[in-house]
């Protein structure tokens, strides 16, 4: 017999293993109709919100920008992103494939980050499919493209934060429906502090500085500041920290089940 195969291939680094997980996961979105259904719904709903006279009022505003498009993203993502993230870990646990994945020589962080990036890439693809809107406003008028780029960056960052939350929740259960519902609730909690009615309620008795501090914890506040065209380092750091925090939470949830 020839030399054992195991010795013929170089031991791959953690990064290439992470990429293997990412590729598998991303391809996994597209082998079922779920991905296409998601993308179609995403495009339909964004379109509806943007162009509807009562909601976005894209035409009625008479302004060449994408504000009517971006303004609904925090609310749209509240329901659409958990649908993307719910399967990340819950499905692995339900199918028993988590045992396979966790006994392959993939470091835990690489599995978590690989899956997270796959979900993020999927959302990025859906978001990229909205660029005809961008082309349209450029055709219709003379928009500030910097603001639009900022809007896309902010939207993607916010999607990442939602996904990280979803990843963590998904790691805690084997039931996708439960993962979906809890993720919606947790994400909603991250919207509320900056939501108009809530800030109004708070400012009735709390000092303005406190209201502002509370609101700064909201995706809504952060996203709106980015979407205005101001790419502020603090907002980037905020979203990055939320992502990091919940990915660590995912690791803790998986390690916890391993030791249980």
């Amino acid at each position: 017999m020839s030399e054992p195969i195991a010795r013929r291939v170089p031991v791959p680094g953690a990064a290439s293993r992470m990429l293997a997980v990412l590729r598998r996961e991303l391809a996994g979105y597209f082998v079922t109709p779920v991905a296409y259904v998601f993308i179609v719904i995403f495009l339909l709903v964004t379109g509806l919100f943007t162009f509807s006279g009562d909601l976005g009022g894209f035409f009625e505003r008479g302004q060449a920008d994408l504000r009517p498009f971006f303004v609904f993203h925090p609310w749209l993502y509240l329901f659409l992103i958990p649908a993307v993230s719910m399967r990340l870990w819950a499905e692995e646990r339900r199918q028993g494939t988590i045992e396979l994945l966790m006994t392959l020589p993939v470091p835990l962080w690489a599995a978590i980050v690989g899956k997270f990036f796959a979900a993020w890439a999927f959302v990025a693809i859906a978001l990229a499919l909205t660029t005809p809107l961008w082309v349209t406003v450029n055709y219709l008028g003379d928009p500030d493209n910097g603001v639009i780029v900022a809007g896309y960056v902010g939207s993607l960052l916010m999607a990442g934060a939602y996904l990280a939350i979803g990843s963590c929740v998904s790691a805690l259960t084997r039931n996708q429906v439960i993962a979906f519902i809890i993720t919606v609730v947790v994400c909603f909690a991250f919207l509320l502090p900056g939501f108009g009615p809530v800030t109004a309620l708070l400012s009735a008795w709390a000092p303005a500085r406190l209201v502002e501090a509370v609101a700064s914890f909201s995706f809504l506040t952060r996203f709106e500041s980015v979407a205005k065209g101001v790419i502020d380092l603090r907002d980037m750091v905020y979203f990055a920290s939320v992502i990091a925090l919940f990915l660590f939470g995912t690791a803790a949830a998986i390690e916890g089940k391993k030791a249980a």
Binding site: V9, P12, S16, A20, L104, P105
Partner: peptide, 11 residues
């Protein structure tokens, strides 16, 4: 595709 995945993880 499954074996390709496992194979690529294995280097």
């Amino acid at each position: 595709s499954f074996l390709r995945f496992v194979g690529s993880v294995r280097g």
